[in-house]
Each structure stands twice: as C-alpha cells, then as structure tokens.
Design a protein around this nucleic acid. Structure first.
Lengths: 189, 189
DNA sequence: CACTTGTCTTGACATAGATCAAGAAGTGAA
DNA sequence: TTCACTTCTTGATCTATGTCAAGACAAGTG
C-alpha cells in the first residue's frame, strides 16, 4: 500500500476494493521548492495528499504576507473554496521544499461519490474533523498568549521548527518573528 | 413554510417533498433565558435551528469564561463533536434570552440520509461553508487589530451590539470588555 | 420602595508584543 | 573567494491592549 492508501484506509476505514477505486484516481505529482500549488484569485482544481515536503498556505493583507497554515506529509491539501464551490482560490499555496504529492483532479474527485457508496458520508466526517480543528485554533487565539500558542505548537510539531523558516511559523502563530525569537531564547535558558 | 423550511430550502435547494421529509423530523422546542442547550463534558444529542433568541457558545479556560460564538435566528446550533462523533461536548451552550428552536434528535438526524438521496452531499457542502467561515475567522486573528475585528463584526452584525452583553462580544472578539468599551467610545466621537 | 446584582464606562497604570534598526551567521551564485 | 541574499537574533523604544479599581446606571427582586 502506498502512503495514500494507508492514510485513506486508516482515516476512512473502507474496503480494499473501494480503496483501490479511489487511490487509482490520484496521480503522483512532483513540485519544486518555490513552485505554486495554488494562487489567490485563480482556480485550484485539484486535491492532493502530501507524500513528502512542506507547503505554505498564505494570503496578503495590506501588502503583508500572512501564513495561515503549513501542510506537510500526511495532510490533504487544496483550496476548499475552489474545489468545492468552483470559486476563485482564497489562498496562495507554495512549496517550502521540493514536494511529492498524490493529486486528483476536481473532475475525478467529484466522481468518487459515484463509485464509492458511502463517500459523501465519509467526507462529511472528515470535514467535521477539520472544522473541530479550526474551532480549537480560534479558541487558542481567544484564550492563549503568544507564548502559550508557541508551546502548544512546539509540543505537537517539534519537527516544524527545524524545517520551516521561523518567520513563517511566527506568522501562523499570530506573532512577529522577533517575538518568536525571544520566546525561543527564553525556552533555552 | 416555516422559517426552518425557508432556510433549508434556500440553503440546500431541494424538492418540496424532501423538504417536508426533513422538516417533519424537527420538533419545536422552547428554552428560557439562562437555560443550557448543551454542557461541556456531557453529550449533546440534538441539532437545532434557531427560530428566535440568542445563545452563547463558550468554554472555560483556567477559570475564565471564553465566548467562542453567539448564535441567533437563522443559525444551526449543536456541539459538533457530540453530534457527529458521539463524544463529550466541547462547549457550553446557554440561552442569552428566551429562545425558540426547531430541534431534531441525533437519531432522527442520522436517518435523514436514508430518506433524502443527496443529503450527505448537501451536508458536506454546508460543512465546507462553515469551514471557510472559520478559516476567515482564524485569518482575522492573524491579520487584524482588536479595532479592526470590532469594525468587521459591527458592519456585519450591528444588531448584536444592542442585544448581547458587550463583555460577551468582547470575549468573542478576543479582547477585554474595557478595550471594547474604549473602541466604541472612539467610534462615537 | 430599598437593595442587590450585573452591565458598562472611565482613569491610572502595567505589560505583552510590535516596530525599527543593526548585526551575525549561513547559503548560494558568480 | 567575494558578493548578494535570507534567516535569525538582539537591543532600544513604542504602543495597543490588559489589569485593577472605582463609579454610574439599569434591571430585577423581595
């Protein structure tokens, strides 16, 4: 089984037959560092699973580049507004490193439901999970200090701090690079 | 048509027949000010549509009461983790005023898919929309000041500021009541 | 009615975190 | 190697926002 099959299987728990039907629709795709997976205002007509590498989801606000999220191995990746509602993408998604993806086109993605009985239901559960994750994230901004948000991310994803430029992590955590640097310094001592 | 039918129809755009099948499963429910719709740690086995009144979604963090969201007429209301994943509720949901709801039990909610062909698909779209809304909200914390967040909410939901205790709105916006009060003062002058 | 309780505002002050500016260290290209 | 560029850190300073404390109202209750 590829990582994709393992992941989909572990997450959605479906039959080997259905699993094949789905994963066959994904094609391997390779992107280089700096390449764009999606661009704000254009259309993102694909859904990908990250096999390796990291991608940064961001948008500009008054000229400033704000990182919304960083996606790495084991994550699904798309601009949801484009994929689901056929509208312009809200996000720039760009590779922070060379990346290997398993990618399905929007057209094929929309066919899955016709091949696999319970797909819409499973996808609904998946989206519900994503919603809960974002709810937590909102709550973190309502209830935590910059340092607490740092701790939270550090405990969960230590490895990011060795791989991802720190100013991107700072942005994603809602603080400046200087603040992140000072928090890190404090942790060492 | 009841508000519920109008809403579901406008949002999901389904046949009059299916519409009836669904809305028949909802029962009217009346709650009084201060009543709890859901409690953190318990199980919330229902999904409701708010006909009238306002409810506050909140949780405690280190003894402090943090408002995550306020739900009013035209919103659906539930603790998603309970409804979808049969786990303990993450949120307290309490009436800020007397409320009229249309409520469906979890059991009946789960039957909808069996009665209405495309239900899972429609619900998926609905959840995707919710996800996009939360994404915006996260972005607002990454990119906006307290005052900008206030402006944003004020433009979209002026009426809340006459109905909802301001300290709850402040909490939901991620600021203290004092800060909200000062921002408001500034706006008058 | 008086009394309690909750809401909202205001002022004085404290502080987390932002901004600005500079420099150190690493990386890649020529 | 040197130069340009990026990342990260550090110090000095500024400011938005938080904290604490008090008072003004308004609303509800016995």
């Amino acid at each position: 089984m590829t990582e994709l099959e393992q992941y989909i299987n572990s997450y959605f728990g479906i039959s080997k037959e259905d699993l094949g039907k789905i994963t066959n629709l994904f094609k391997q795709e390779v992107l280089q560092k700096e390449d764009f997976f999606a661009r704000e205002g254009e259309y993102c007509n694909k859904l990908s699973f990250v096999k390796s590498g990291y991608l940064r989801v961001y948008a500009f606000k008054e000229g400033k580049d704000i990182t919304q999220w960083i996606s790495g191995p084991g994550y699904f990746l798309t601009d949801l507004q484009s994929l689901v509602f056929d509208q312009q993408a809200r996000w720039n998604i760009q590779c922070l490193s060379d990346c290997e993806l398993y990618t399905i086109s929007k057209e094929n993605y929309r066919q899955i439901g016709k091949h696999v009985e319970k797909w819409d239901h499973l996808e609904k559960l998946f989206l519900a999970k994503c919603f809960l994750t974002l709810e937590d994230r909102v709550f973190s901004f309502l209830s935590m200090t910059a340092e607490e948000r740092y701790d939270h991310l550090y405990v969960q994803n230590k490895e990011l701090f060795n791989i991802i430029p720190l100013h991107n992590l700072a942005s994603m955590l809602g603080m400046t690079p200087e603040t992140l640097s000072r928090i890190r310094k404090k942790k060492v001592s």
